Amino acid sequence: MLALEDPYAVVYRQIHAVASSDGEEVEILERSSCFGGGAWSLHHYSKGPLVVEARSVGEWFRYRVRAGRSDLALASSRRSAGIEAVAVRGDEVEITYAGLGGGGVGATVSRSRAGDVLRSSVSESGGGKVGRGTIVLPRRERIAVGVDDTDSKTEGATWSLVHNIAAKVDRPEARYVSHALVQLFPVPTKTQNCVSTVVEFAALPGKADPMLAEFRDLLERYTVSEETGMAVYRGFDPSPLMEYSQLCRTERIAYDLAIETAARTGTEVVIAGRGLIGALAAIPFCGRPLASVRPGE
């Protein structure tokens, strides 16, 4: 006879916390096992006082929040669940969720059992009760890897190669969390569609270098271009590269500007072919694949 091990728990596959350097802001990334449940949470959680931005990116639900504690003022059907508290404590991030009824189940068991959770404490939930759950996650940093020009007129596709490499090097110390194709200005040297690619990792501080070395090795092995570019940005907010990116999306720019921009923004040049121009332009669109595919204006 078929049986359900836990009929009321839909456990998130992964949850990560990417913190700013000062610990004042955190982006919570939840990899859902049920999109419908994640969408319900997104609707209610986005109304919480601590939430600055909430959005879905495929199977990932992302909440940019301020550190602190708030009164959610839970109300059935209007604000049934939310993020009640966020605290950055050294190399850990503590998140408390609360919810009414089924929202309390999501706030407790569904998140406490997710991958990469270090430890948790939960109250009873379900029915008419208010459920609360606190999870503790390793503090992570954002690593954005921009790549361009890996193909030729006859073979290859940068976006697919970069995705496959990112999936291959994914590990607990550096989780692969997003992929975006970035539409660039159609320069004469383009292969076909003139897009670059950025992939994003949520990494434990100081633990990303082995992953990045493997990423570079695989990229150099499988690229079919002599002009491949690869750049790496480490930081909570890659927006310092957005002005350059928008320029690259609206006109043809010189290679020297890419080198100058990398130095000014602290972006590491890993492979310095002509594709570096587009690789840098991709980085500020990490985690925003719906915006990045639109032509620049």
Rank of each mutant, 00 (worst) to 15 (best):
L2T: 04
E5N: 13
Y8F: 14
R13H: 13
D22Y: 05
R31M: 08
W40P: 02
W60Y: 07
F61R: 06
R64E: 09
R66A: 02
R66G: 05
G68I: 11
G68S: 13
A75V: 12
S77C: 13
R79E: 15
I83L: 12
R89H: 08
R89C: 14
G90D: 06
D91C: 00
I95W: 04
G101K: 07
G104N: 04
A107R: 00
A107I: 01
T108N: 03
S110T: 00
R111L: 08
A114F: 05
D116L: 15
S125K: 00
G131T: 06
R132Y: 07
V136K: 14
A144L: 14
A144T: 02
V162A: 09
H163E: 15
A167I: 10
A167E: 12
K168G: 10
V169F: 08
D170G: 03
A174T: 07
S178Q: 03
A180V: 10
L184A: 01
P186A: 06
Q192N: 13
L204Q: 13
P205K: 01
A208T: 08
R216I: 04
E220N: 06
E220W: 06
T223V: 04
V224N: 12
V224C: 15
E227A: 02
T228F: 02
Y233S: 09
G235I: 04
F236L: 10
S245L: 06
Q246D: 12
I253H: 00
Y255M: 14
A262F: 01
V269C: 05
I271E: 07
R274T: 07
P284E: 01
G287E: 04
R288W: 03
L290M: 15
S292A: 12
G296V: 03
